[in-house]
Design a protein around this nucleic acid. Sequence first.
DNA 1: GAACAGGCGTCCAAATAATA
DNA 2: TATTATTTGGACGCCTGTTC
Length: 305
Amino acid sequence: MDTNRIDLNLLRVFHAILEEHSLTLAANRLGLSQPGVSYALGRLRAILEDPLFVRTGNEMQPTSAALEMREPLRAAMAAAEHALHLMVPFNAATSTRVFRLSMSDIGELAFLPRLCAALAECAPRVRLDIQSVPLDQIEDALRVGRLDLAIGNLPALVGRTRHHRLFHEDYVCMTRRRRGLPKRALTLEQYLAFPHVFVGSLESGHHQIEDSFRKRSIHRQIALQVPHFTVVPHILAHTDWIVTLPRRTIELLNPAGDFAVYDLPVEIPGVTVTVHWHSDYDTHDANRWIRTLVIDQLSDEPAHT
DNA sequence: GAACAGGCGTCCAAATAATA
DNA sequence: TATTATTTGGACGCCTGTTC
């Protein structure tokens, strides 16, 4: 196999066929003629000594060799696209750039409406790609440009990436309204008597709740662990369980006031929501623009990035 | 260093083949 | 029969080696 004969255009063709499952659609996407794509595929087949795609009906199905190349190639194409973006001055009004942000489900509910409204006004052609990246992969994703920003309660990243504090809030607890509930406050005994819904995942830093209780030798009965907050109201509506969650999420998950909300009967550290980026992009125009927008829209504190 | 010629790579249009 | 992939021949542009 003579890999010296492969150029970036051949890989663009290969990537487009992988995405489109069709030479005709790949050609449209690349602005080439269909025979041109066929010819490029022919060269790739000769170089890589594999058919790469076989026709099944009206679709081009990738071979096992092509499938093995898919993810590394996708990452390489993203990195190349990112590198090219670094060379182009960023103009919000005309840019068609895709910004990749990582946030939790509750982040999507809480942050996206404001961010999208701001984008529609000042950068109408910019696209957001929201991803939920596991916590242990965020630093690498920021470094290689697979992510532009990560937003959330991410204490493990502080000190390993650049960050800006957006806001801080405490935890409260929430359960379905019903007779017999305390009117104002819960005692610790009452709080611990509930079966608990624990919201925690690899993407979130909310494991700190459980860590704080464990340090105080407080044991909660966890009835359910789920990775996302958005499902919680549906669970609570059918159970007498209780959930502990950041205060600002109450207005999103309890807009009609169907649930009773209490301060926690024990002090635990609150949530600090931060926006993170990699230091390599400190002076990068587009990254600076999107993080300033995020900070302006979501922060309790002014931007000075 | 500049100009030229030949070779090579890439693309397109048209024709042909394969498939549902 | 319609749609799509593949093949073929020709045009164009770039690269490289040669000559001055």
